[in-house]
Nucleic acid binder design. Structure first.
Lengths: 185, 185
DNA sequence: CTTGGAAAGTCAACATCACTGTCCTATCCT
DNA sequence: AGGATAGGACAGTGATGTTGACTTTCCAAG
């Protein structure tokens, strides 16, 4: 039962089953690619004493302004305490605005300030440049396959969350004035 | 210059340029999929008090038995000291065997013990099951695209290292007897 | 053959980050 | 009023990573 044991339950020898070798290459590719994937924002993050958690937090607040702490928690999949530390830093540094929920005053709705949006953009651009270049180099058909495999890799629950993530949020008015028509628009 | 600014240098509007939205979805997919990707081995790792670093170390030693600490360092991309702590734990726990280099006595050549190989297999199987299932669900064409995009995402240097990684190492005799014909075979 | 530098590896101290556990406040809802 | 929920705070633990200093071994110059 070494690695050259090719007769596993799943590896029935038919054409559609991926060979162990192919799968192993995929695993390593995933590892190396993910490292590259995070390297660009990491460089910026290190300079300002932040970590990936800060980036992810900014990303998802930017994507869905006004989301609650609980919602953010669910997306990020970290503990409340862990997120809280990050969030506190971002709020203290004036990158995130935490406002009492309009619907439920127990909730906090999170928004990026202009400064926070600027950093998010800077981080995002660094990361997007790499992904965009990879997409361009690999071609649209490869991109479709890439997406398919990644989605197939997620747990059903996570995939569902991924798919139901709100759309890009077109205007996404940042919090500036307090008085607003409730859940404006 | 919000996210709806679609007129970037790279986004010239032609069909081959990925839209910002597509790229953003890809980034999020990468994030979620990587979490799923590591979740299975993480579960096992937690039980025995190890982390991902231990898994990676076992993986690459298994893949290329007898590699030196320096070589492992280059692949993992961490500092010598960081690796050393992990390596020490694995050696003390009897999962890895560190032997004085046959060519250069300063070097240490690393091998998995039977116990180490067993754990590596256990971790690897958990991870492979997911990737294999994803491959199967997405289909061979998608797998090819997946691989293409991941490789395109790596730095040239990393891609080179990825491609020149030694082959699976078929028999890969683990270290059992001390006396051997030097660099056996 | 000795000596000194370079390289491989190891050990020790320190920083960061995430997690667990627990307690607390404010608010909602019945 | 009382239980449940959203959020925040604090202490302790563990994994991971870093810098700095040290030992062993190799190699090449004198």
């Amino acid at each position: 039962m070494q690695h050259h044991a090719a007769r596993n339950a799943t590896d029935t020898g038919c054409g559609s089953a991926a060979s162990d070798e192919q799968v192993r290459r995929g695993i390593e590719a995933m590892y190396f690619a993910y490292r590259a994937f995070t390297s660009d924002p990491d460089l910026i993050l290190d300079q300002i004493g932040y970590g990936r958690a800060h980036h992810r937090t900014l990303h998802f607040i930017n994507r869905d302004p006004g989301l609650t702490v609980t919602a953010l928690l669910a997306v990020l999949g970290v503990t409340k305490q862990s997120l809280n530390r990050v969030l506190r830093a971002l709020i203290e540094d004036g990158l995130v605005d935490s406002r009492i929920g309009s619907r439920d005053r127990r909730e906090r709705q999170l928004y990026l300030t202009d400064k926070g949006a600027a950093l998010e953009r800077r981080l995002s651009q660094a990361q997007r440049a790499r992904v965009r270049a990879a997409y361009h180099a690999a071609g649209p058909q490869a991109v479709e396959g890439f997406r398919l495999v990644l989605e197939a890799m997620m747990d059903a629950e996570m995939l569902d969350r991924f798919r139901t993530l709100p759309p890009p949020h077109p205007p996404a008015a940042p919090p500036s004035m307090a008085s607003r028509t409730e859940a404006a628009e």
